[in-house]
């Protein structure tokens, strides 16, 4: 279709590209946070905390630009839904980064203490959440409502893993009450990951709204 609003479309495209950049920053923050926790690399944890500033700044910049576009271009219909989705998605992304920062802080709190057990399910939660995040953003770019719905369903998997981590850590704590502090920290870390996956379902909802114009809860988290 011959569009007569190339400048406007260019602005929208740039906004989407920047949202993807923000997405990948958040994605790597989650990966680094969990990796540092697993490897007990406090320096890496500190880096995650520092870099959260960059993510915050990127988010504000994108938000500012979408407000400017709304004010100057008076978007309607799918453009309006798209811009509203962007504003909502970057908020979710920024909160995910805060969860990643939370994990990094937990890692610092654990400090030199040994972990009560090697981490297996927490990295798995991390992998699943990150994959969901990446695919939810793919669905956004491709305006793929069905894909977004499918991604949101995977939140159940993260919930199940969280259940498993929860029960396992509980067992460890009962067996050896001296591990309670550290085990609780790990529980918090797992909870952060669970929240990240929930945020991904929010993004998926926005994708569905952008494409269909319908606002609906597509997968209510167990937690």
């Amino acid at each position: 279709m011959a569009s007569i609003r190339t400048h406007f479309e260019q602005q929208l495209r740039e906004l989407q590209d920047d949202t993807l950049v923000l997405g990948s920053m958040v994605d790597s923050a989650i990966a680094s946070a969990v990796d540092a926790l697993k490897r007990r690399d406090l320096e890496a944890s500190n880096r995650v905390i520092d870099e959260d500033n960059l993510i915050d700044r990127k988010r504000w910049e994108i938000e500012q630009r979408s407000i400017m576009i709304i004010a100057t271009q008076q978007p309607t219909a799918s453009d309006l839904r798209f811009l509203y989705a962007i504003a909502s998605i970057i908020t979710d992304l920024e909160r995910m980064a805060d969860h990643a920062e939370g994990i990094a802080k937990i890692s610092l709190m654990i400090g030199d203490n040994p972990l009560p057990k090697p981490l297996i399910d927490i990295p798995r939660m991390c992998d699943v959440s990150r994959s969901m995040l990446r695919r939810s953003l793919d669905a956004f770019v491709n305006r793929d409502a069905e894909g977004a719905k499918a991604v949101a369903q995977e939140d159940d998997l993260v919930d199940a893993l969280y259940d498993q981590v929860y029960r396992e850590l509980l067992t460890i704590m009962i067996e050896n009450p001296r591990t309670i502090t550290i085990a609780t920290y790990l529980l918090w870390a797992a909870h952060n990951l669970e929240r990240i996956a929930d945020r991904v379902t929010n993004i998926c909802e926005r994708v569905v709204y952008t494409v269909t114009g319908r606002m609906e809860e597509i997968n209510v988290s167990k937690y």
Partner: peptide, 14 residues
């Protein structure tokens, strides 16, 4: 204005 049913409406209002 938020969710027109017709593609042609969408093209016009956007």
């Amino acid at each position: 204005f938020t969710n027109p049913k017709s593609k042609r409406t969408e093209d016009y209002i956007t």
